[in-house]
């Protein structure tokens, strides 16, 4: 029992602690590719600390929805973070929710963020909310189908089981095709869900092109800090999903200190590598027009469907 509580606590520290680093790393990679020096990878930590201490300006049109949303968003994203195995394959909270529960936990945060965007009453907030609602709903089918493809190859939709079996080469090794196709689909979904290029540009300064940033335009002070932190945690949750579902090797499958340390190092390396990939992608790919999103997500859906079909064809 005590060990389990320690594990949960450790996982919480990892998710909370590593997430700003990932954002900083992506920014650094982008800066390098744009021939800038760029801020330190640890800049997001300093930013968070500073924004936490600032006075919060609350728009007078808003209701309690506006002030409660950052906490709900933070709580639901962190809860999702505790369901994903990061450095240890058998998380004690694994029983609390499978991958579908994780998706819907994140959706809870999105729902409240959409409401908060509408609450301030400015056109920008409404615009962000409306677009976020579109993106959130059209990513769902590809996400669920790719999850199902993964579930088929691993024989479970419980994250612990998926990671455990894949780490020990059970199930996926016979044929990697469905696994890889599902990876492609889930990667596109992850980009859309976390508001990265080509779906949304987190670095944009023009309100008319914003999605996520437009919704949180009226936040300041500690509320902004919580929302930003939650956004970086959401990114880390998806990165952890991608690396640990598809390449869990190195993760600790036994509860020993050595294995855990190795798992932690492997996790950091893998997540950083994927963050570098996203950084490179953001510099080389143009943002899509909002209404061409359906093509990208349609492609993700087809990839996931192919993954399912391939699984059945090669099953025999």
């Amino acid at each position: 029992m005590f060990g389990n509580i320690c594990l949960i606590f450790l996982q919480m520290v990892v998710i909370l602690g590593v997430s700003p680093f990932v954002v900083g790393l992506i920014r650094k990679v982008k800066a390098w590719l744009q021939c800038r020096k760029g801020p330190s990878v640890f800049q997001p930590y300093a930013d968070l600390r500073k924004i936490f201490c600032k006075e919060a300006v609350i728009p007078s049109t808003t209701s309690w929805i506006f002030t409660i949303t950052p906490y709900i968003l933070f709580g639901s994203t962190l809860a999702a973070g505790l369901l994903v195995p990061a450095f240890f394959a058998d998380m004690p909270l694994g029983f609390a929710g499978n991958i579908i529960a994780l998706v819907y936990l994140l959706a809870l945060g999105t729902f409240f963020l959409i409401l908060a965007g509408l609450d301030a009453g400015s056109a920008f907030g409404g615009m962000g909310s409306s677009r976020e609602a579109l993106v959130a709903s059209v990513t769902e089918p590809a996400m669920i189908l790719s999850i199902f493809a993964i579930g088929l190859t691993a024989g479970s939709t419980n994250l612990n089981t998926i990671v455990h079996r894949t780490a020990l080469f059970q199930g996926v090794t016979t044929d990697p095709a469905p696994h890889l196709l599902a990876l492609g689909a889930l990667f596109i979904v992850a980009l859309a869900e976390t508001g990265r290029v080509p779906v949304d540009n987190p670095a944009t300064h023009l309100e008319l092109t914003m999605i996520h940033e437009a919704m949180i335009l009226d936040y300041s002070g500690r509320y902004l800090a919580l929302v930003e932190w939650a956004a970086s945690m959401k990114l880390l949750v998806f990165l952890s999903l991608l690396v640990n579902i598809f390449a869990p090797w190195g993760i600790a499958v036994e509860a020993t200190a050595g294995a855990m340390t190795l798992g932690l190092v492997a996790y950091l390396v893998k997540v950083s590598a994927l963050a570098v990939v996203i950084g490179i992608l953001e510099c080389t790919v143009a943002k899509l027009r909002l209404f061409r999103l359906s093509e990208l997500l349609g492609a993700a859906f087809i990839l996931a469907l192919l993954a399912v079909i391939f699984f059945y064809m090669f099953r025999g």
């Binding site: 201490c53 300006v57 728009p59 709580g75 639901s76 009226d218």
Partner: peptide
């Protein structure tokens, strides 16, 4: 989990930001 972890958010806000200083102002 939802309840407790939202509480963690509140805890962080108090640990890092101290007492809540807020001001109501019209939307930009």
């Amino acid at each position: 989990m939802l309840l407790a972890l939202s509480g963690v958010g509140l805890l962080f806000a108090h640990l890092l930001g101290g007492k809540l200083q807020s001001r109501s102002y019209k939307t930009w």
